[in-house]
């Protein structure tokens, strides 16, 4: 067991920590000139890349990216909750396995194929517009393909299973005796959900949010495939520095900034949630103590 844990750490260090460390080092370097050896010149370390990374258009793209990721995460949550609830609390153990399998089934098809499938579906000659036309709603001349809306569709579609799975696990683990106890104490079905099921599923909502939001913010393939030129997200910008720009040190600096931003967002969200709980708890205990003392 200990050997296994050691192996896990080694694996993690080798394939995650080491590349991240290399990126960190690169971000302080300078892109090698055409005649120089290697990708990044590390003889003159400095913060120049970071200053350049903060310049236009990074800020604008970053704001759009955060907006996209927040909105798509919220949509994922809204869609995932009823689905996870149905899977975890309404299905029998056997049909539960089948439906969970269906949730992850798209992952068995190549990512590019699925995205191209969406492009065909959303295109002016595709199924969506065909259906809308058939219903008498003639909107052929507006295409949502290659817009932010298409990016949103792609993001929600791609990350939805990552929200459903942890949420379904948490919802399934809620002891049904607790729901019976609430019922027994006078709570209607909606009140049982509001006061017991939903608060107890918060850890699943938080896990789903983090699992979906973090990779979404850095995603560059989905925006490129679905949004084209108008669907630019921060990940695309970073990727283009590594590929077209051939400026690895600048790309590394942008990546590091993105990581720091994500850490900051997650930490702030965590502090916010626990902080509110702590303050509320303190206030209530004090009020109770005062009352009980008199």
């Amino acid at each position: 067991m200990r050997g296994f844990v050691g192996l896990t750490y080694t694996w993690f260090a080798l394939w995650f920590m080491a590349p991240a460390a290399i990126m960190l080092v690169y971000s302080f370097g300078r892109t090698a000139g055409l005649t120089q050896r290697g990708l990044v010149n590390l003889h003159h370390l400095g913060l120049g890349n970071f200053l350049q990374a903060l310049r236009y258009p990074t800020g604008t793209v970053l704001v759009i990216s955060i907006e996209n990721a927040v909105l798509a995460t919220a949509l994922c949550g809204l869609i995932a909750y009823p689905v996870a609830y149905f899977i975890a609390r309404k299905l029998g153990p056997r049909s539960r396995v089948i439906v969970l399998l269906l949730v992850v089934l798209p992952f068995w098809t190549d990512y590019l194929l699925r995205m191209l499938g969406w492009r065909i579906f959303l295109s002016p000659l595709g199924l969506l517009y065909g259906a809308l036309n058939a219903l008498g709603w003639h909107v052929t001349y507006i295409s949502i393909l290659d817009t932010r809306s298409a990016v949103m569709v792609g993001l929600v579609y791609n990350y939805l299973p990552l929200f459903i799975l942890p949420l379904a696990v948490v919802l399934e683990r809620i002891d049904s005796q607790l729901l019976q106890a609430a019922d027994d104490l006078g709570a209607t079905r909606w009140t049982v959900f509001r006061t017991v099921t939903f608060p107890m599923s918060m850890s699943g909502v938080v896990a789903g949010t983090v699992l979906v939001f973090v990779p979404m913010l850095g995603d560059y393939v989905t925006p490129t495939l679905m949004g084209g030129a108008r669907g630019l997200m921060i990940g695309s910008l970073v990727a283009s520095e590594f590929t077209e720009g051939q400026n690895w040190s600048l790309g590394a600096a942008m990546a590091i900034l993105l990581i720091l931003l994500l850490v900051a967002i997650v930490a702030m969200a965590w502090l916010f949630v626990t902080g509110i709980r702590l303050v509320a708890f303190r206030l209530r205990s004090r009020a109770l103590a005062r009352e009980w003392a008199t």
Partner: peptide, 23 residues
């Protein structure tokens, strides 16, 4: 239904709500 009856139950494994204080 149970929530409309003026009857309360003490469950075998207590079934206290873990996300709430005793109060």
């Amino acid at each position: 239904p149970a929530h409309s009856r003026n009857v309360n139950t003490v469950f075998q494994n207590y079934a206290l709500f873990p996300h709430m204080s005793v109060f």
